[in-house]
Simulated assay, not measured.
Amino acid sequence: MSAEPRVRQRLEPDQRRAQIMKVARALFGEYPYESVATTDIAREAGVARGLINHYFGGKRGLYLAVVRQLVTAPSPIADDLPNSTVERRVTVLIDRWLDLVERNASMWLTAIGSEAAGRDPEIDEILFQGDEIATDWVIQAARLTESDECVTELRAAVRSFGSMMRAASREWLVRGAFTRSDLHVLLTDTLLHLLNVTFPALCASRRVAAR
């Protein structure tokens, strides 16, 4: 970590908060949580340490805010998708998601590593929220409507796919088992099969069971 403090600048509160989070995202992504001190973050951000407590309540609150921003913050991933086939829209959606993960690889792995290493109720809740947001993206991309008949199965199937996405991203970023191109093919083909084959079968099964 840098030993030289950054030159302090006069910024609006929202700008200052964003600056602290940007530095924290980089440090938490590069170093273990236990190795990052609020003094390190304050020095890199060029702010007084008290501002971290003021805005976030301390290191833990800042860490959770960074994870929440990465996993659940509004994103243009599903905005302005091509007015084309579902296959094309899903292809673009997956490509944008891979862009997001690749840009934030270290912090992404730190965030989902909490899920793999053990139970952390606060991280779990953030990841659950992220699952719901990602599910909305897929439903939007696929131009599906959440009919009352099969909404439970639809959302559960897409959330399950989200768990696969996180596991597959580890194979790409940590193990190197996939190239980005490989992963794009895997995720796109799997999601399209889920939407075109698996979900209709689940919905049909629901209708039969309801008779």
Rank of each mutant, 00 (worst) to 15 (best):
C150K: 01
G176F: 00
E171V: 00
F161M: 10
S160L: 13
L144R: 13
M164G: 12
S169F: 03
R170S: 01
E153Q: 15
E153C: 11
R175V: 01
R143D: 08
S147K: 09
R155A: 06
M164V: 14
V174S: 07
A142Q: 07
L173R: 03
F161V: 07
C150L: 03
A157H: 09
G176V: 01
T152S: 13
G176W: 05
E171L: 13
E171H: 07
V151F: 03
M165L: 12
D148E: 14
A157G: 11
L144Q: 11
R155Y: 11
L173H: 00
C150R: 09
R155W: 10
L173Y: 05
R175H: 11
R159N: 12
R175D: 10
S160K: 06
E149D: 10
R175I: 01
A167I: 03
G176T: 00
L173G: 02
R155H: 08
R159M: 14
A142G: 08
S160H: 11
R143K: 12
L144M: 15
E146I: 04
M165G: 07
S163Q: 13
A157I: 09
V158E: 04
S160W: 11
R143V: 02
F161W: 15
R166H: 05
A168C: 01
A142N: 03
G162I: 09
A142V: 05
C150G: 14
L173C: 01
R155S: 09
A157Y: 08
M164Q: 09
R166T: 00
A156W: 04
R170N: 01
L173W: 04
F161Y: 15
A142R: 11
F161S: 02
T145G: 03
S160V: 06
A141P: 06
A168D: 00
F161G: 01
E146P: 05
R166Y: 06
A167T: 01
G162E: 05
A157T: 09
L144F: 10
S163C: 08
R170Q: 06
T145I: 08
R155E: 06
A156S: 14
R166M: 10
G162Y: 14
T152W: 09
E153P: 04
V158M: 09
